[in-house]
Amino acid sequence: QLNLPENTDDWTKEDVNQWLESHKIDQKHREILTEQDVNGAVLKWLKKEHLVDMGITHGPAIQIEELFKELRK
Rank of each mutant, 00 (worst) to 15 (best):
Q1R: 04
Q1C: 02
Q1V: 06
Q1H: 11
Q1S: 10
L2K: 12
L2A: 05
L2C: 10
L2D: 11
N3V: 01
N3H: 06
L4A: 04
L4Y: 08
P5L: 02
P5V: 01
P5D: 05
P5K: 05
E6T: 03
E6L: 04
E6N: 12
N7E: 08
N7G: 08
N7R: 08
N7W: 04
T8F: 12
T8C: 11
D9T: 10
D9C: 10
D10E: 08
D10N: 05
D10C: 12
W11I: 10
W11M: 09
W11H: 00
T12N: 12
T12W: 00
T12K: 05
T12F: 00
T12M: 03
K13A: 11
K13E: 06
E14M: 04
E14F: 05
E14P: 00
E14A: 06
D15C: 05
V16W: 03
N17S: 06
N17M: 07
N17W: 08
N17V: 07
N17K: 12
Q18S: 07
Q18E: 12
W19C: 02
W19Q: 01
W19F: 09
L20N: 00
L20C: 04
L20S: 00
L20Y: 01
L20Q: 00
L20P: 00
E21H: 10
E21N: 02
E21L: 04
S22L: 05
S22V: 07
S22K: 11
H23G: 01
H23V: 12
H23A: 07
K24G: 09
K24P: 05
I25C: 04
I25L: 06
I25G: 01
I25E: 03
I25S: 01
D26P: 10
D26K: 13
D26S: 08
D26N: 10
Q27S: 11
Q27H: 04
Q27L: 06
K28R: 06
K28A: 08
H29W: 10
H29G: 12
R30L: 11
R30P: 01
R30E: 01
R30C: 11
E31D: 09
E31I: 07
I32C: 11
I32V: 07
I32Y: 04
I32R: 08
I32F: 07
L33R: 00
L33Q: 00
L33E: 03
L33A: 01
T34S: 04
T34H: 05
E35W: 04
E35D: 07
E35V: 04
Q36H: 14
Q36P: 01
D37N: 14
D37A: 14
D37H: 14
D37V: 13
V38D: 04
V38E: 02
V38N: 01
V38Q: 04
V38W: 02
N39F: 01
G40F: 09
A41C: 11
A41H: 14
A41Q: 13
A41T: 13
A41F: 13
V42I: 02
V42Y: 15
V42E: 15
V42L: 14
L43C: 13
L43N: 02
L43W: 02
L43K: 06
L43F: 05
L43Y: 07
L43H: 00
W45H: 13
W45K: 15
W45V: 14
L46V: 07
L46Q: 11
K47H: 02
L51H: 03
V52G: 13
V52P: 01
V52L: 10
V52F: 14
D53H: 10
D53E: 10
D53R: 14
M54I: 13
M54S: 06
M54T: 05
M54D: 04
I56T: 13
G59V: 14
G59H: 15
G59Y: 15
G59S: 15
G59K: 15
P60Y: 14
P60M: 15
P60D: 15
P60R: 14
P60W: 14
P60T: 15
A61H: 01
A61V: 01
A61F: 02
I62A: 15
I62E: 15
I62H: 15
I62R: 15
Q63R: 08
I64V: 03
L67F: 12
L67W: 14
L67N: 13
F68R: 08
F68A: 12
K69M: 13
E70P: 12
E70M: 07
E70S: 10
